[in-house]
């Protein structure tokens, strides 16, 4: 199918991009376009103008900044997967990114783009939420840091304001003793996750000190499985894990769609959380 007409600009600087976006509320950022172009082709979106930020140097690159890894918004999934800095500082992100879409899409799709798209079925929002990433946005008014917990507002809606561009994301490094895993459950390799679970777990002396769990496709935004995290805290590795993970779907409102009903999604969240936590914690 064929998109409806729109204008296109490729600003030479981030400031210019912010201006373009501030001037037209129906303008939209295009990064890799891997989420946006199918929507345009199906005529599910009608932006007046696309502001292409893919080549802005301010949005490029992966940087080791001591206590965190800074990933420029326009870093492609493929670059994230292959980055030594990400592998060392945010290995959960590298693992999950390798499960996003397929190689050709990963060559174009960007880290920032998939977060700004705010699709709760996307894999990376839940991962960034679990890793307590901080999203950095720039506008004519300056720079703003948005914790992931405040970034995802609703289905396909982030807290980015008109005229703001996502510049990059700070992913705090997990220190020693942390293990991690991402469990993605889907019907075919190409299909979106029915449910995904991102888990990061800090162990010491055979028990779990801290757990951070982000859930994919369990609501209109990615969500933290807070009740399960609390139940896991201080728990010895063993039979109790499964019991604690029974809390994984607490306070979630998973969607009903073609591929699953809410009760099945809740069930999956429990099973997959147990699997993710078990793997993350290195438990048998």
């Amino acid at each position: 199918m064929i998109p409806a007409s729109f204008d296109y600009v490729r600003p030479g600087s981030l400031a210019e991009a912010c201006q373009e976006l501030a001037a037209d509320e129906d303008a939209k950022v295009i990064a890799g376009g891997q989420s946006l172009l199918p929507l345009l082709r199906l005529r599910l979106a009608y932006p007046t103008k696309l502001v292409d930020v893919a080549r802005l140097p301010e949005l490029a690159g992966v940087h080791d900044r001591g206590d965190h890894v800074f990933i420029g918004a326009m870093t492609t999934h493929d670059e994230v997967m292959r980055s030594g800095v990400v592998a060392a500082g945010a290995p959960l992100l590298a693992l999950a990114t390798a499960m996003v879409a397929d190689p050709a899409v990963r060559h174009r799709g960007t880290f920032g783009g998939s977060l700004a798209h705010a699709d709760p079925a996307g894999d990376l929002p839940a991962v960034v939420l679990a890793l307590e990433g901080v999203l950095v946005a720039r506008s004519a008014q300056g720079e703003r840091e948005i914790p992931a917990a405040d970034f995802f507002v609703d289905y396909l809606e982030s807290s980015l304001r008109q005229g703001e561009v996502l510049v990059g994301v700070k992913i705090p490094k997990l220190g020693d003793g942390w293990g991690f895993h991402y469990e993605k459950f889907h019907r075919t390799a190409q299909a979106w996750a029915i449910v995904g679970v991102a888990a990061a777990v800090r162990r010491s002396n055979g028990s779990i000190q801290e757990a951070r769990i982000g859930l994919t496709n369990m609501g209109t935004t990615p969500v933290r499985a807070r009740a399960a995290e609390t139940a896991l805290e201080g728990l010895e590795l063993g039979d109790g894990l499964r019991q604690a993970c029974e809390e994984a779907a607490a306070d979630t409102s998973p969607p009903a769609d073609l591929h699953a009903q809410p009760d099945y999604r809740r069930h999956l969240a429990r099973v997959l959380t147990h699997r993710a936590v078990r793997t993350a914690a290195g438990a048998p």
């Binding site: 199906l42 019907r187 075919t188 390799a189 190409q190 299909a191 073609l258």
Partner: peptide, 26 residues
């Protein structure tokens, strides 16, 4: 994997290959 799904109003819910799932090599 495959089913052409119509809802109660007769809308086809599997109008794209994102929803009508074909098996890939994987």
């Amino acid at each position: 994997y495959e089913e052409a799904v119509y809802d109660a109003e007769g809308n086809l819910l599997t109008a794209t290959l994102a929803d009508y799932l074909l098996p890939s090599a994987a």
